[in-house]
């Protein structure tokens, strides 16, 4: 399927080729799977890749397909089985898929795919309502230690990055992660309403999602989860407040299993030139995503470590049976 805009771009690419422009990769015809419904973070990542790859003339055409279901479990199963050995396919994935695969007892794992690169990450934040007596991360820690059941955390779906973070916070301050009173809401909107309405003690989310509320003073951010402070964000990290909590909602791109090293290199190179393109940088700025490019073996290592960490946390809160 070729959409109108990409057909136009195709014509442009053909013209530049005729003019004698080099680069073999312009022949690339890619398919990117977003293992989620249109509109979500993975879909937006896939479509942003599509836009940048075509705009920067790295690929001749890029087609995005959506295979929604169970935090990506359905998509990855189809990808691993259906795209095996195909050097023209990519799949977007991220933090949430690690937990989803473990919780759904998926027969397909992330070890089977060929890692290409980590692309972006979003920093996480803990917020409280503006009128809350809790002012710092240490205040929250004190409250949790006093009576862990009474401190309610609102966040996204069970086993997702927000939930894992609540458990990690409890673990970091020496409380029992299993006893955290975490209340999953469907979608950032619903949990934000619960926080603003004072129904819960604190809320956990990606920073960009609550940025507006934090800046307008309706929510107080008590800590962000990055290693160091971020330019332009006037919020202390948990680390500098003496709590060892570093986590990010990363998104990455992988290739099917069974591709040749040459095929892998072509895909890696395409993604490497994509992240350097102006189109990609512009999109990152628009969407508030941090550039977290990490390629090939370094990314493969990261993926392994993150899988172990997330699975351990999910075991500790009882979502994954050990």
């Amino acid at each position: 399927m070729i959409s109108f805009p990409s057909r136009l771009f195709g014509a442009v690419v053909a013209l530049t080729l005729a003019a004698g422009a080099p680069a073999l990769s312009q022949q690339l015809e890619l398919k990117i799977m977003a293992p989620a419904a249109p509109g979500g973070g993975w879909d937006q990542t896939a479509r942003s890749m599509q836009q940048s790859l075509v705009a920067a003339k790295i690929a001749r055409s890029v087609q995005v397909t959506n295979v929604a279901g169970a935090g990506g479990s359905v998509g990855i199963a189809q990808f691993v089985n259906g795209a095996k050995g195909d050097g023209n396919q990519l799949m977007v994935n991220g933090f949430v898929m690690v937990g989803a695969l473990a919780m759904n007892k998926s027969p397909v794992t992330l070890e089977q795919v060929t890692p290409i690169a980590r692309l972006t990450e979003e920093i996480q934040v803990i917020v409280v309502p503006a009128n809350s007596p809790i002012k710092t991360a240490q205040d929250l820690a004190t409250a949790v230690k006093a009576d862990i059941a009474k401190v309610t955390f609102a966040g996204g779906s069970a086993g997702g990055v927000d939930h894992v973070m609540a458990a990690l916070f409890a673990g970091a301050i020496g409380a029992d992660a299993k006893k955290v009173n975490y209340i999953p809401f469907s979608g950032g909107g619903e949990s934000l309403a619960a926080i603003l309405g004072g129904k819960v003690t604190a809320g956990i989310s990606g920073y960009s999602e609550y940025e507006g509320q934090i800046k307008s003073g309706k929510l107080r951010a008590i800590g962000i989860t990055s290693e160091k402070r971020i330019a332009g964000v006037d919020i202390p990290t948990f680390k500098e407040q003496g709590i060892d909590l570093v986590i990010a909602n990363w998104r990455s791109v992988v290739a099917p299993p069974g591709i040749t090293p040459e095929q892998r290199k072509v895909l890696s190179d395409a993604v490497a030139s994509m992240v350097k393109s102006d189109a990609w940088k512009e999109i990152l700025k628009q969407k508030g995503w941090e550039d977290a490019y990490l390629a090939d073996e370094a990314f493969a290592d990261f993926l392994k470590k993150e899988t172990v960490r997330v699975t351990d946390v999910l075991k500790s809160v009882g979502l994954v049976k050990s």
């Binding site: 509109g39 960009s208 507006g212 509320q213 307008s216 309706k218 628009q286 508030g288």
Partner: peptide, 13 residues
């Protein structure tokens, strides 16, 4: 998503 095309984040501001 439509707003974000223009780098806008709907919200109190």
């Amino acid at each position: 998503a439509g707003f974000q095309q223009y780098g806008l984040n709907p919200g109190p501001l």
